[in-house]
Amino acid sequence: MNCVFCAIGSGQLPAHRLYEDEHFQVILDIYPLRPAHVLVISREHAPFLSDLSAAARERLLALAERLSRTLRACGYGARGINLLINDGPVANQHVPHLHLHLIPRRPGDLPALAWRIVSRFLPFGRQALQARLTREAELLRHALQREL
């Protein structure tokens, strides 16, 4: 199977891992739309939400709520967080493996968000972004250990 999220889950690819349990792994998005953009990735290779086991579906929103609380406690998304599942390629799902985005927002961030949507895959600024992701991962990992 040639799935980037399966490769991350098996340790074949690196990721900024924040949390893992029997159903999910939580990582930072390497092409974040906003600071502390988190992905909740199913351990099962489930291309669509309907393909995910009932046990994992039941756990997903509870985990998302805990992650939202942790993000807010760390100063991200205090006034709002987008929770987004792109369910299928027509819905802009680039990796055919179920994942939930948590994208912290703040008032007035729409121009920056729009710019990131357009430029997120461009190669410039990757070194500074990697340094920021490392800092965010450390902060969030410690906060999640206390929360979860």
Rank of each mutant, 00 (worst) to 15 (best):
N2G: 10
N2V: 07
F5P: 04
F5E: 02
C6W: 01
C6G: 09
A7C: 10
A7Y: 09
S10W: 06
G11Q: 04
P14H: 02
A15W: 04
R17F: 05
Y19D: 07
Y19N: 13
E20N: 07
D21P: 13
E22M: 15
E22C: 12
E22I: 15
E22R: 15
I27Y: 01
I27D: 03
D29G: 08
Y31S: 10
L33A: 07
P35F: 12
A36L: 02
V38H: 04
V38G: 03
V38N: 08
V38K: 02
L39V: 07
L39N: 03
L39E: 00
L39R: 06
V40K: 09
V40Y: 06
V40E: 02
V40I: 15
I41E: 10
I41M: 01
I41T: 12
S42K: 10
R43C: 05
H45S: 10
H45W: 08
F48A: 15
L49W: 11
L49M: 12
S50N: 11
L52N: 12
L52I: 08
L52W: 12
S53L: 04
S53W: 08
A56Q: 14
R57P: 09
E58R: 14
E58H: 14
L60M: 15
L60E: 05
L61K: 00
L63M: 01
A64K: 02
E65F: 15
R66W: 00
S68Y: 00
S68N: 00
S68E: 13
R69E: 04
R69S: 03
T70L: 02
T70H: 00
L71C: 03
Y76G: 00
G77F: 04
A78H: 03
A78P: 13
R79E: 08
G80N: 04
I81M: 08
L84Q: 06
I85F: 03
I85T: 03
I85Y: 08
N86R: 07
D87G: 14
D87R: 06
D87T: 06
G88T: 08
P89T: 15
V90Y: 08
A91F: 05
H94E: 07
V95N: 05
P96N: 12
L98Y: 06
H99V: 06
H99E: 01
H99F: 09
H101G: 01
I103P: 07
L110C: 04
L113G: 08
L113K: 05
W115L: 15
R116K: 07
I117Y: 12
V118W: 04
P123K: 02
G125S: 09
R126V: 14
R126S: 14
Q127R: 15
Q127M: 11
L129H: 12
Q130V: 13
A131Y: 13
R132C: 14
L133G: 11
T134Q: 14
A137N: 14
E138A: 14
A143I: 07
A143Y: 10
L144Y: 02
L144R: 04
Q145N: 08
Q145S: 11
R146A: 13
R146V: 00
R146T: 15
R146Q: 10
E147I: 09
